[in-house]
Amino acid sequence: MRKIFRFATFSIIIGLLAFLGCAEDEGTDEMPLEIAGAVYVVNGAAQTISVFDIEKSAFLSDISIPVGKWPADIKIRGDFAYVINTGDNNVQIIDLTSNTTAGMIDVGDGTAPEKITFASDTKAYISSNWTQSVKVVDLSSQTVISSIDVGVAPWGVAFANGKVYVCNTGVVYGDETTYGQGTVSVIDTATDSVLKTIDVETNPTDVVADSNGNILVLCTGNYADITGKIVVIDSQTDNASAPIDLGTTPSGITITKNGIAYITSFGGLLSFDIAASTLLHNASSALTDFAGGAGLAADIAGNVYITIPDWTGGGQDKLLVMDASEQLIGTYPAGGGASMVAIKQ
């Protein structure tokens, strides 16, 4: 009898411990996803790229691709990733089949390149923050072939409908940083000339295009009394919508296949239904599991990969995976200053 009692007690304790253990880890189990592909995470502080295997749901421990100083963007086209190293004034081309550097594009001293977008397999556009211009790059010769003057301190760039949309932040840095009128320059890629300049909100830093030709401009605000906003530009008419106030300072933006835009912020993840032009999660209803997010990208299944950088150098950088139902399904330790994300599928 005593043995049975001991066994029962022991089993209950073990069961409780197992239950509590599961409860603690709820939502953070590393659940392998049934899709193939890789997530490339730029570790801004470590100046490396880590590769996350989606199917295995794990970082590939033997791969760490060195990048340059102040990496600011990563975009994938075909078998190549293009990494903008702002501090080195170059674009690093990485062959994703071998995870090695295949080439470098010199954007020029003192240009501070920030973001890249592709008009074709042979033509890319790079915003040059310090020269108030966009550099046109011939990808086959890996050289800058021309420069197009745009607005003040250009940052985000996106391509849609034969046009490149360039965020002109209007920010003049210095002893007293001033925020001028934020605008978006529209460049005709056939003539490489500015077709139109559209007024948007304060400090537009990022821009993404959806499959319907909507251009979402993320305006960061002034980090103080002016909060972030989204402005949608119709790439057919190049007219801007009324701004949608996010109520907080956003960081990055991506669009899922379902037409939902997700926006990272310090307080949590925001979401925006593009078709309905409605905020689904605003600052007060943000998905707090993803607080402190920086870069993000969505895969073809609607999963979103979000980086949480630890800029203190404390090694608490993370990659979070959110499924299409907005649940946290994985948390993975990432490299120092994990920030930009790009996916190859």
């Binding site: 980090y223 300072t249 800029w311 150098g313 404390g314």
Partner: peptide, 17 residues
């Protein structure tokens, strides 16, 4: 004392490490 981004993304020094 290390500077790192705090609330709102502003860099601020703290006794961290």
């Amino acid at each position: 004392i290390l500077w790192s981004p705090g609330i709102g993304g502003k860099w601020t020094p703290e006794n961290l490490s």
